[in-house]
Structure formats: structure tokens, C-alpha cells
């Protein structure tokens, strides 16, 4: 950019009439190497702001914020599920122990097969009925 234009922009800058874009142009100009001597102090001011823009908080800050903000796994729910599994397991093993040993109910294998098939059919029909409202 020409020196005359920069002088105009600077004048506007001190009068608080520049836009953000024009201020960026000034900053860009003063970042260059061919700044005349009488404008050196202005270059210092613009580099000061540019340097301030690089200031950042310590890295620990983000971690500390995330620590509070991060959703935690629902531990209470997990504990209840674990407790339920243990109680169920205990109950089942007690039930199994008290049950008499299994006995054969059918002498004829054909009859036994038919009974099993019938039981499975009823179970499957009920399953279909049960799942129907979900669809």
C-alpha cells in the first residue's frame, strides 16, 4: 500500500474513524520492513497489540474447567445393576439347590418330541404377540 494511503488511514485511526478492516490493514503494513523512521513508534504500538493477542492462559485451565463440566458415568445406576445381578444370582442358585433332581416325564421319545414342539410353538406365538406392540 502507498505511503499516502497509510498516512490517511493513520489520521483516521487517531480520530477513531477507522473500521476494523482498516485497522487490520494498518497492522499488516506495520508488520512489514519498510516503515519510515518517523512512524517507528506507531509500529511499536501495533506490534504491542499483536503481541498481546498471543497471550494465553496456562494449559491447566482448560483441564480444570473440563473437570467440572465433563458428564460423569452414572455410577449410582451401575451400582444398583451390580447389586441386582448378585441378588438374582444368589436367588437362582438357592432355587436350583432346593429343586428336586430332574425326572423323565415321557417314556416314548415320539411323544416327548411332540410335547416339546407344542411347548415351543406356544412360546413362539406368545413372543410374537408380545413384540407386536413394539413395532
Amino acid at each position: 500500500m502507498e505511503r499516502g494511503q497509510i498516512a490517511q488511514l493513520l489520521e483516521k485511526y487517531w480520530q477513531v474513524e477507522t473500521t476494523v478492516e482498516e485497522e487490520k490493514m494498518l497492522e499488516e503494513y506495520f508488520r512489514g520492513t519498510d516503515v519510515p523512521l518517523e512512524w517507528e513508534s506507531y509500529r511499536d504500538i501495533f506490534s504491542f497489540y499483536e503481541r498481546e493477542r498471543g497471550v494465553k492462559p496456562g494449559e491447566g485451565l482448560e483441564e480444570r474447567i473440563m473437570e467440572v463440566v465433563r458428564p460423569r458415568p452414572r455410577l449410582r445406576g451401575a451400582w444398583w445393576s451390580a447389586a441386582a445381578v448378585i441378588v438374582l444370582g444368589l436367588g437362582l442358585s438357592l432355587y436350583q439347590r432346593d429343586k428336586p433332581a430332574m425326572k423323565d416325564t415321557y417314556d416314548d421319545p415320539q411323544q416327548a418330541l411332540a410335547a416339546v414342539q407344542k411347548a415351543l410353538l406356544i412360546a413362539s406365538r406368545n413372543m410374537h404377540k408380545g413384540l407386536h406392540p413394539l413395532k
Binding site: I45, E50, R51, K56
Partner: peptide, 24 residues
């Protein structure tokens, strides 16, 4: 001032330390 935050500064050379302190 948080001196650490200025450690890795690419504009270090653009502005003399005394000038920087003066503006600040």
C-alpha cells in the same frame, strides 16, 4: 504479569522489551 504466557512469542523481535514495558 503472567510471564510464562510470553515464552513462545513470535513477535518478540518486532518490539524492544523496554518499548513493550513502556506501552504496558
Amino acid at each position: 504479569w503472567d510471564v510464562n504466557s510470553h515464552d513462545k512469542d513470535p513477535h518478540e523481535k518486532m518490539i524492544a522489551k523496554e518499548t513493550y514495558m513502556q506501552i504496558r
